[in-house]
Design a protein around this nucleic acid. Sequence first.
DNA 1: TGTTAGCACTCCTTACCTTTGAGTGCTAAG
DNA 2: CTTAGCACTCAAAGGTAAGGAGTGCTAACA
Lengths: 353, 353
Amino acid sequence: MELSERKKKVLRCVVELYISTAEPVGSKAVAQMPDMKYSSATIRNEMAEQTTMGYLEQPHTSAGRVPSAAGYRLYVDELMAEYRLSNDEASSINTAIEEKMQRVDKMLEKVARLVSQATQLPAISATSRQGGATVKRYDLILAGENSVILVVMLSTEQVVNKLIKLPLNITDTDLKLLSAVLNAAMTGLHAEEFTAELLQKVMTSAGNAGVLVPVILDFVTETLRHQAGTDMAIAGQSRLLGLPEYRDVDKAQKVLSSMDEEALSNLPAVMQGENGTKVLVGPENVAQELRDTSVVMTKFDIGDGMHGVIGVVGPTRMDYAKVTARLSYFAESLSKLFNKPENSQLPESTENQ
Amino acid sequence: MELSERKKKVLRCVVELYISTAEPVGSKAVAQMPDMKYSSATIRNEMAEQTTMGYLEQPHTSAGRVPSAAGYRLYVDELMAEYRLSNDEASSINTAIEEKMQRVDKMLEKVARLVSQATQLPAISATSRQGGATVKRYDLILAGENSVILVVMLSTEQVVNKLIKLPLNITDTDLKLLSAVLNAAMTGLHAEEFTAELLQKVMTSAGNAGVLVPVILDFVTETLRHQAGTDMAIAGQSRLLGLPEYRDVDKAQKVLSSMDEEALSNLPAVMQGENGTKVLVGPENVAQELRDTSVVMTKFDIGDGMHGVIGVVGPTRMDYAKVTARLSYFAESLSKLFNKPENSQLPESTENQ
DNA sequence: TGTTAGCACTCCTTACCTTTGAGTGCTAAG
DNA sequence: CTTAGCACTCAAAGGTAAGGAGTGCTAACA
């Protein structure tokens, strides 16, 4: 069933007025909108009808209307005007990403912080991967008398290292052998393939430096397992408190602590398969605590089957157009960044001086 | 000037009652405390006197008394009974630390989370170092056709790495030369000593692989600066909202956002030199936003001139005895953990891409 | 038939007033 | 020096009234 043009227009006005004022919207206010050609009485009828249809709600008889979850849904799906980022916004996002992404190990944290800044809402960023990573190569560097640096390159092009202290002296030749053995026997394997038998086999053939094998294996499996899991960061939680709907401390606390906990760590799972930007309006959230909170999230590509998710949490009354636009742009820029490694840091900025 | 025994006893009662009830304390309530041998009238006089002395405050004429900052100070310094952790508490902290500290790069985050759990307050954990780190050695590993792994070992024995993609082919010999040049010219330097002239000099003498120098230099300075600076994590912010003093959303927001921002990143600086556990009561905090919030923090040792700080943020009315006891125990346990090197569970490792 | 002006009605919000009671300071007696 | 007694203070709680934004409905109008 399609709604009439007028219905759509009115609903859209109500949603947008409510988004910007956070107060129930009266027929008069709608009538006063620039290109609204109807009187408040007509709009009153319209709104009454839409209330029975379930798109609007009335807090009490003599109050204005507030969009229902269904109303928001319709708005997001059909009525929302595409928000086009200004060049300023776009380039400020780009330069922010560019500046902050120096250290990848803090990546998630920084992304979350940036997204939160851009949207003025609490933000979450997370990574997850479909399959498991494997090891691509091992290198061993003798560093001083009795320590060796293990450098491991993963199939994801990520490089991790570990400093290992040696109880006894091991020569460079020993390390060369060990390294050769490792690269021959222990590459291309998933976390669960590092078995005790493999350990035995590698240890015996690694000769003198074989004592290092258990430590190395421990480290590698731990790393791979960690890779497979989900890592996440949260930023800007305090922004929630600035919003009128969270003047109610209990409400705010529920939302914030469900962010703190794992309640939202299924965020990447929700995005499984999906592409583009996903909006969960209020009750569409599974978690009970988020019943009157909306979540907007989007995926970005890290390459090699790995992807990340960024999302924000806010009141159902949030500026979906702006938020989705900014989030998508972020995701796009991040994807570019990660998939263009030669270009050391810069995602192609649309139109930057 | 020493206070009389009776004065101390009364003050202590007031503080402890207020800590547990969050309501202004009346003379009657104090008189009813188990070992209080005076009538409410006597205590009334006592409290009136302590009010003029500045240890107590009266929200309004007909209300009970609330400890002032000076009152808390006195309590913390002299009156507070040492809280002894039960075996249960101690061992649960220990097992928590042991279980969670698998990966060092997430260490801060996990410590913060644990501390927050143990104290039921928002917690911060941070690391900082006294001097600045320097680079001890560079290694370059050719990894595939057109990428090279830079491995940098710092004076702190920390190892960091970065994968660099090459636009043109560079031979192993080129890298050997570059590596030699780097190790000769760019070790032992602090972040601020990496000047433009140095860059020029190294670039010219590095021959073919000289193009890599700017990237390397960028990475290294950023890393050193990062080392010198403070790294920190926050957890459990939402717990603040459960406390009656932060029912006022504006107040809560001020505190939370000053945690989010750098306002508290001077936390390690505050601990500079100091040892043991430090309590900052309300206005003793420099930051304006924290005027009616207390901070308790303590240092722990990571070894190699590096130390960490853990702290919690809460209302001036907080259970100082419990909180300081738990915090100290945490710090102690962490110090032990970090200074037991054969316990190989804690590699100093850094991930990079 | 769709649109609009008018109007009575609803009911939340705000302000103001009163009551209540916990807690005080002071005084006088023990 | 301590304590009982008492008048006083003032925030908190509750109740009432005025104000006003917004509605639904009806009737007139294009």
